[in-house]
Simulated scan of single mutants.
Amino acid sequence: MPGLLQPCERPLMLSQIAFFGAVETGLIYGLVAFGIYISFRVLDFPDLTVDGSFPLGAAVAAVLIIAGWNPWLATGMAIVAGMAAGAVTALLNVKLGILNLLASILTMIALYSVNLRVMGGPNVPLLMQDTVVTWWDSLLPPEYYFLAPVLLFVVVTAIVLVLLWRFMKSEIGLSMRATGANPRMARAQGIATGAMVVLGVALSNGLVGLAGALVAQSQGAADVTMGVGVIVIGLASLIGGEAVISPTSVLRALLACVVGAIIYRLAIAFALNADVLGLGAQDLNLITAILVTLAIVLPGFRTRVQARMTRNKA
């Protein structure tokens, strides 16, 4: 039996590529789940801007890389662009009094045109361009090329997780959490809740912009439609992770985001590659809907079963 990473026959190698490809994508969407955790869980701010800020990050990074920028600087500018998009949504809500959900929809719609302007068309290819993945490719033998982005995204996700964890324990992070938990009490304590909302939504979309930039560099192209359904994927990752790891602390909640994203992508890969299920790429949205439904229902079902077992023991 060949080892897991030992060169082998084509069927097993395809299985390896599918597995590590799902892990790679799961790590990237873990960053999206971080952003959705900040907006939905910390701030209680339903934000659909992510469907626009995701391709915005990809577009900004791709255009700057083609213009000759260092890929890491281009990725940093993608984060800034995502934060700007999030700040617009928050300001529409805080300053103009527009309902948070409607404000995010308005920004998301506007970003479609912005993304077309940034890219100068519907897509930008990155073939033959140096990206953040290029250096990591040189670390491994050619037959293991599919592991290079996995290693890179493990490092990036771990760094972001630690930074977010530390931020949420800081004074500003605690103020942001208080704003989401009870805005009226937070204002009574002298917290500028409006500023916290702007900062939190901007940070959330900055993380989503980072994920979009990494996806574009990993897949070799940025496309204006690549953000469709990102909010659903992020929610599926967040809810699924919370079903596996109880978010009793900030660190556990952040870990749940990553674990949920990886489990979600592995479940998608299994469903699409299992011949016995007869599913294809056209069934992706159906699979997503089923996974999200299960992630929402199963924790409550588990609680009811445990309560019934407790009553029977009594």
Rank of each mutant, 00 (worst) to 15 (best):
I172M: 12
V258I: 04
M226P: 00
G82V: 02
T107Q: 02
L203I: 06
V198H: 08
A33D: 09
S246H: 14
G97Y: 12
L14H: 13
I98A: 03
N123W: 04
V160D: 10
V224Y: 00
I290F: 06
I98T: 10
G260V: 01
L210S: 08
D51C: 03
I290C: 06
Y264D: 12
A90I: 04
L284F: 09
F167E: 06
L127F: 04
A256Y: 04
L294E: 06
P11M: 05
A274Y: 13
L140A: 05
V94K: 07
G280Q: 12
A58E: 04
I263R: 01
L5E: 09
E24G: 07
R166E: 15
D137M: 13
V63M: 02
R302D: 06
A61M: 14
F146R: 09
A261F: 00
Q306H: 04
L199T: 12
A243E: 11
A148G: 04
Q129H: 08
A243D: 11
S138L: 14
V155I: 14
N100I: 12
V230H: 03
Y264S: 11
L140S: 06
A216Y: 03
V94E: 13
M77Y: 09
N273F: 11
L286K: 01
F40L: 14
R177V: 00
A267K: 08
A85W: 12
W135N: 04
F20K: 07
I17K: 14
N100K: 14
P142T: 05
K169T: 06
T107V: 15
M309I: 12
A289H: 11
V276K: 10
K313D: 10
W165P: 11
V224N: 11
R308F: 13
A236H: 01
L73A: 15
V88H: 02
L294A: 11
A74F: 03
M83T: 02
A202E: 09
V292N: 02
M196D: 05
R166S: 10
L56A: 05
Y144C: 06
N93R: 09
G52R: 02
R308H: 08
N312M: 15
T193L: 01
A67V: 08
N93G: 03
S39F: 02
L235R: 00
